[in-house]
């Protein structure tokens, strides 16, 4: 366990990706955009020694989706990299090749929010059952079960 990161260190290392703000003790948030997320994570790994991805959280902000990558390392400071993904074309680069644990979280977000992670090795159904209808993302705010659709739980099919 090494000394905690200071605001200056973080904003210095990530200044080209966006402005950093101290959310609370031990938590620094950097807002960036979807084009820069891959290089921002690489920079955090390289200069800030971030070796652990806590989670990728996803929120539905009506006009867009908010993705936040929470990273930490031996300094135990949580660095949150936030991006906004447009709702009309929800697409963002996959970070699963530089952060292997991200693969599971990305598939989960794809399933529940319908965000497409380009470059992901296998973005198939993850959380929902096999006969869940395509194009229905239950964690979106505007999702309502459609009476005409069957959402599975059928006796036939599946293993």
């Amino acid at each position: 366990m090494t000394a905690q990161l200071t605001m200056e260190q973080v904003s210095g290392a990530l200044k080209e990706y966006g402005s950093a703000e101290q959310v609370r003790k031990n938590r620094i948030r950097v807002s960036t955009d979807t084009q820069k997320i891959l290089s921002a994570i690489k920079a955090a790994q390289q200069f800030l020694d971030c070796d652990h991805l806590i989670l990728i959280s996803c929120t539905d902000d009506t006009g867009s989706f908010g993705l936040t990558y929470h990273l930490t390392g031996p300094h135990r400071t949580v660095i949150s990299l936030a991006v906004a993904v447009p709702r009309e074309s929800p697409q963002v680069f996959s970070v699963s090749d530089i952060l292997p644990p991200a693969a599971i979280y990305e598939r989960q977000i794809h399933d529940l929010f319908g965000i497409v992670f380009s470059g992901h090795p296998g973005l198939s159904k993850l959380m929902l059952n096999e006969d869940w209808p395509d194009g229905e993302y239950p964690l979106r705010k505007d999702w309502k079960p459609n009476k005409a659709n069957s959402y599975g739980g059928a006796a036939q099919g599946g293993t």
């Binding site: 959402y151 599975g152 599946g158």
Partner: peptide
Amino acid sequence: AVTRKQASRLL
């Protein structure tokens, strides 16, 4: 409670 995925397995 029976989840959608487990219903067919339970049966």
